[in-house]
Write a protein that binds this DNA or RNA. Structure first.
Lengths: 208, 208
DNA sequence: GTGCTATGATACTGACCGGTAACTCTCTTG
DNA sequence: CAAGAGAGTTACCGGTCAGTATCATAGCAC
């Protein structure tokens, strides 16, 4: 029933001829990333992802072993992008840990100011995926542990007495800013995250 | 097929005779509250709730118009409990806003130290329920806005120059502590939330 | 007793879920 | 030209989802 019309066939042919068209895998991955972030993981079905990527479920399962693994892949890529941005930012202020922190919080402030932002994909996924053996959980925990350690490293370079404590406090501010985006929006407490970090850093430096 | 055995009948009769047995509504509500919090909202079906409450789906729908409304009800009750606890705590330190904040963060610290804790039900729900017209969203936004305002009020009573700013910073710490519970656990940064709050309050008071 | 209310039990709807089978088409590479 | 890889299409699987209809049973109030 409902055979494809000639119009549809021609459209599809046109699309195929376009050499610039990304692979099905890339389209699926990009679409899934966007939908997972904006609508939530459990709220988005594989059929929806495929349709939105102008392909079908079969292409999804030819490129990814399962939805759970697709989710994990998405978060792995987010982790890679995150650290690439982070280290690029850090290398712009070598030997100046304080400036590195300032730049990091400026970046965060810019992100949470975006009205379309919906917090941190990692933290959101941790809220949604409660099965402790979900493949994404390892990615999430590793990512957050690394961030905590990286913050502590920078704080130590600043010479603060209790660098672990300051790092944890900054970590709380970061996570808090991301999550409040989803309840009180960009005009909520998140917009004061950079100032909060500055005050905390200042207080620690004075105490050293 | 599979008629109930005499044993099952007797068991049911025994359960019914127990006058202390809570109503189906209460059992459903309590079970749903626990499951929603521990497993997540979308991860728990109405059938599971009913079974876990030793009743059936029909009793659920006789007492609640829909699952979405049940979720909203759960959050409304959480809001009521939250403010009852909060105001009881505040009234224990009348005329001493600083002590009120200290007590609030002590309570929060105790909560996030529980290894079974899974953050703030409101914030978690905000992550899971992305449909902007979900009945729970209004409850969540109202709750968080009220908390933000209440914090600002207390900070103003302390006489800090920029009480709104301090309130937002404390808010970020609170939300951050709750959410990090789900990625780095009770031994994560959350355990430093009270100290972080103390330092921020101190810095603000010194600046006034 | 007679109702009334709350509860239970079972079966069902239609939609959607993640995942698979089988076949076709088209483009690329040798 | 031939062969193979990537991609599209359609139909299907078993299971679960939220929500409903129907009938039976129990306890309570009058």
């Amino acid at each position: 029933m409902t055979k494809p019309s000639n119009g549809q066939l021609r459209l599809r042919a046109l699309r195929k001829r376009d050499a610039n068209r990304p692979s099905a895998r890339k389209r699926i991955f990009d679409t899934a990333s966007e939908l997972f972030y904006l609508k939530g993981i459990r709220a988005v079905g594989v059929e929806t992802i495929a349709a939105e990527a102008n392909t079908t479920k079969m292409s999804l399962y030819r490129n990814f072993p399962s939805k759970d693994e697709l989710v994990a892949e998405w978060l792995r890529e987010h982790d890679a992008n995150f650290w690439q941005t982070w280290e690029a930012m850090a290398s712009r202020h070598p030997e100046d840990p304080r400036r590195q922190l300032k730049a990091a919080f400026a970046l965060l402030a810019k992100h949470v100011a975006d009205p379309k932002a919906r917090g941190c994909p990692m933290a959101n996924a941790a809220v949604e995926l409660t099965e402790k053996d979900h493949p994404a959980r390892k990615v999430i925990e590793t990512h957050k542990a690394k961030l905590r350690a990286r913050l502590a490293q920078i704080c130590a370079q600043m010479g603060t007495r209790d660098s672990r404590l300051l790092a944890d406090q900054l970590f709380l501010l970061m996570e808090g800013a991301q999550v409040t985006t989803q309840t009180l929006g960009a005009r909520g407490p998140a917009r004061n995250v950079a100032r909060a970090a500055e005050m905390l850093i200042g207080a620690h430096l004075r105490a050293s």
